[in-house]
Write a protein that binds this DNA or RNA. Structure first.
Lengths: 200, 200
DNA sequence: GTCTATAAGGAGATAGAC
DNA sequence: GTCTATCTCCTTATAGAC
């Protein structure tokens, strides 16, 4: 843990903060805990980030960016839109179920951002990014299944994002994976129903 | 603000805590802030609640109970299940849009409960109560529309609860009421589709 | 039952040596 | 860049007078 550039140290502190937040919760992610996790002194944290809020913004940005990078997937042509959506959500679900702490941190950070002066914009940005991922996936499904959606894209994207958020939130509370997966499948099928053959 | 019984004082402190939490967030709901809001001294709070966690449990209980009481509604016979569900969600939405702080506090408290030793049970209880409300509403819709649901009730109830949670969560971030209402309508219609005429 | 006063500790942030 | 030491403020909780 010798000397490194400010940029490297910042990345290392953000990574440490994410580990602490997943393990202990965002509320318990103090600058002291982050410093200990990263193996540096408290003052080093404040040398790299003028205020703690800047570090939290870095955490939120890193989490959203990682999620965004992981969500890219191309779809082979053909198939039913409901089935394509269902398969996409099942792949997403595997990731969620493997990293529950990450999802919990995401929701906690959104709440913190909404309540913190000057961070509300980050919450909205996070939501726009996730909404954009939903939109792109819905467009990919439309191309693959050769259909047009019968609802405006903003409405459909919001439906899909709401379904994912709500389902994950519920699972974080009761950890009933079986019922959760069946609900997710049914909701995917539902949304797939808002389609008609392309150009008709 | 003279003397009152412990029970009365506890209720008054819980009510004060809810007001502070709606205004400032659960994280900022300190015993001092609650005492000030209730017009009593700090020591009085600790006289009525041995630990702060007991007070928070009282807040969560009060919020869930109030929500539960407000959700009762009888449905006139006849109509389409999707339309009945949609109308129910629209009534619920009016309440949500009128009291955004209340919803935000609910999510914040769930997160706190999940992270707090000894409070995880409260989060699960909260979820079971809300799930029960969804189940009862779905059963009422089935009676009114004379249909049977084509999915098991636990799955349907979870779908409905997830939809409400996800939609509210998204609206708390971007406050786009128009898109939110259209998404809610479409999702209600979707869930209504998992039905067939009764006894067929 | 309610108060004032205080304990005991944790938080973010900074000063100044190296 | 990183450290130790410290400041200042705020938190939960308690003691003891009234």
């Amino acid at each position: 843990m010798g000397r490194m550039s400010v940029a490297e140290r910042r990345d290392s502190l953000v990574a440490a903060a994410i580990r602490v937040a997943e393990r202990e919760g965002v509320a318990a992610t103090t600058t002291r805990a982050i410093a200990a996790e990263a193996g540096v002194s408290l003052a080093t944290v404040h040398y790299c980030f003028a205020r703690k809020q800047e570090l939290l913004e870095g955490v939120l940005t890193a989490i959203v960016t990682q999620l965004s990078d992981a969500a890219q997937a191309e779809l082979p042509p053909g198939g039913d839109p409901g089935v394509l959506l269902r398969d996409g959500l099942r792949r997403l679900w595997e990731v969620v179920e493997r990293e529950p702490g990450r999802q919990q941190v995401t929701y906690e950070l959104t709440q913190v951002a909404l309540r913190t002066e000057g961070m509300a914009g980050f919450a909205r940005w996070q939501y726009e990014v996730q909404s954009g991922l939903c939109r792109r996936h819905l467009e990919a499904v439309a191309r693959a299944a050769r259909i047009d959606w019968t609802l405006p894209m903003p409405v459909l994207a919001r439906m899909l994002l709401a379904v994912v958020d709500g389902v994950v939130l519920g699972w974080l509370v009761d950890r009933d994976g079986a019922t959760t997966r069946r609900s997710l499948d049914a909701l995917a099928e539902s949304i797939g129903g808002f389609s008609r053959p392309a150009g008709s």
